[in-house]
Design a protein around this nucleic acid. Structure first.
Length: 490
DNA sequence: CGCTTTTGACCAGCGC
DNA sequence: GCGCTGGTCAAAAGCG
């Protein structure tokens, strides 16, 4: 009968929320509890799957954590537990036995969860370690690559692609050192309380020997641009942010004017975008983003921001660029090309431009995706991260000098040990930039990828609305359906 | 009235 | 040095 008296207490304990607080020293929080109660605490404390966020209470405060238990037992334990808590169980022997069985089952379940929790924690540690190792290795290799390129440039001045890589490095370095973007100026000026009109060249001519010595150290400060090409009749894309047009210019070689917008969601947000129609096909709208938002974004904007941010991060984390798409299309391309051959949505493949004054990555959404439907088995087998070309792969494509960087076709498990593929995939997936970008990309693909026009309708805010409102480029109009399929930033 | 767009002027970088 | 080009500014105008 002793266990019978424990039952309400244990359930009461679960109901008290201590169970839900995970491992946060609930023992200390319960100084008045008897040692008998602490006996039940131990296994409970370890189960932190039920975080407070999961809101496991129903409207009247009943514990709803019995879903798993119901699933495992096949009995409606929930009802019995609630009844027990409210003291409405009948006192006959059957109910006591039933309750006792439930307690035992609960304990077993908790033990199982404990074990599962431990395993998951262990797995998480491994993934984190794998990710960190990968990151360290990439940094190391990149450093080696730059040194090697400089040396090679001295030894073999006409080294073909290496020459191009070197040129690109020089170009980026020159861009960083000599032509700091006005946005950078703005950022720094804003922080220093200076006028943005402060002469930029003075700041570009850095006197900091460290900056000039090692352009590589400045990678995080390089200004990347992310261009998105999409078909649209609208004047601009609805990316969820608020933009204010501050200029328009006729660009050379394009009869269509280029419009300049800056983000107005927060004072001093450095993000800007340029919108211009393609000269060859005026139905194609090219939106170029630059900078990072310094403010919280609405949900409708996070996808775009995350994607462009990931793309920019991907670009900046790669030390060299070339026409990636061309490289990938080449039959002689390395095994990495098979990644893209297997990549089902070539329309979203990024193109890196070495000729632009700023490192630019272009996401072309003008072509319909290859398959009519996303292959679910692809997702389930390889995980969502497999869809995303990542920085490592792009580096490997451009980096003929460092074969150790090559990550062969991730989509061909036969080419790599499965655990290695999993590790890499997990490492990539751990990167919030890529997961966010992935979410945006997939929502884009699934949301409207089947039809090019539909796709673009998802991406593009038809600015007939804007025109009505005086041509405002406010893309965060609440009355518009908030598309999470916007693409590209920051 | 406040916000946005328009548009000419201005500035800086670059090539010749 | 000059002209071209890209990018930005800021006053004026428009809009709700």
């Amino acid at each position: 009968m002793e266990e019978h008296t424990q039952d309400p207490r244990e359930i009461a304990f679960l109901h008290s929320g201590e169970f839900l607080r995970g491992d946060s020293d609930s023992k200390d929080d319960q100084p008045n509890e008897s040692s008998e109660e602490h006996r039940h605490e131990s296994p409970i404390k370890e189960v932190d799957f039920f975080s407070a966020k999961s809101q496991p209470y129903d409207d009247i405060g009943h514990v709803r954590m019995t879903t798993t238990i119901v699933g495992s037992s096949g009995f409606n334990d929930d009802l019995v537990m609630v009844n027990s808590w409210h003291g409405t169980s009948s006192d006959d022997g059957d109910d006591k036995t039933k309750t006792k069985t439930q307690i035992i089952r609960l304990k077993l379940e908790l033990a199982r969860l404990h074990e599962e929790n431990y395993k998951l924690k262990h797995l998480l540690d491994e993934i984190s370690e794998s990710y960190n190792n990968l990151q360290r290795r990439v940094l190391l290799v990149r450093q080696t690559q730059v040194e090697g390129l400089h040396k090679q440039h001295e030894d073999i001045p006409q080294a073909g692609s290496s020459q191009a890589l070197e040129d690109m490095n020089n170009e980026i370095a020159a861009t960083t050192l000599k032509r700091r973007s006005p946005d950078d100026v703005d950022d720094r000026d804003m922080h220093q309380g200076r006028s943005p009109k402060t002469p930029r060249l003075d700041q570009n001519k850095s006197n900091n020997p460290d900056e000039q010595q090692n352009p590589h150290d400045q990678l995080p400060f390089r200004k990347a641009r992310v261009s998105v090409r999409a078909r649209s009749d609208a004047t601009t894309v609805n990316d969820g942010c608020q933009w204010r047009k501050y200029g328009q210019k006729m660009a050379k070689g394009n009869p269509c004017p280029r419009a300049y917008y800056r983000c107005t969601m927060a004072v001093g947000c450095p993000v800007r975008k340029q919108v211009q129609r393609c000269a060859e096909d005026t139905t194609i709208l090219t939106t170029t983003y630059e900078g990072n938002h310094n403010h919280p974004l609405p949900p409708s904007a996070t996808a775009m921001a995350a994607t462009t941010s990931a793309a920019a991060a991907m670009l900046l984390s790669g030390s060299t660029t070339s026409n990636l798409h061309q490289t990938l299309s080449s039959p002689s391309a390395t095994s990495s090309s098979s990644f893209y051959n297997n990549f089902p949505y070539t329309s979203t493949i990024a193109t890196l431009s070495a000729s632009a004054p700023f490192p630019t990555i272009t996401l072309d959404l003008t072509n319909p995706p290859r398959p009519l439907q996303p292959p679910p088995q692809f997702l389930s087998q390889y995980g969502p991260a497999a869809f995303l070309p990542n920085a490592n792969q792009i580096r490997s494509i451009n980096n003929n000098n460092n074969p150790q960087l090559l990550l062969p076709n991730l989509l061909g498990p036969q080419a790599l040990p499965r655990d290695m593929v999993d590790s890499v995939r997990a490492a990539i997936a751990m990167d919030p930039n890529f997961t966010a970008a992935l979410a945006a990309a997939i929502s884009n693909i699934i949301g409207g990828g089947n039809n090019d026009n539909n796709n673009n309708n998802d991406i593009i805010n038809d600015n007939k609305v804007d025109a009505k409102s005086g041509g405002s480029s406010n893309g965060d109009s609440p009355q518009l359906p908030q598309s999470c399929t916007t693409f590209s930033t920051n």
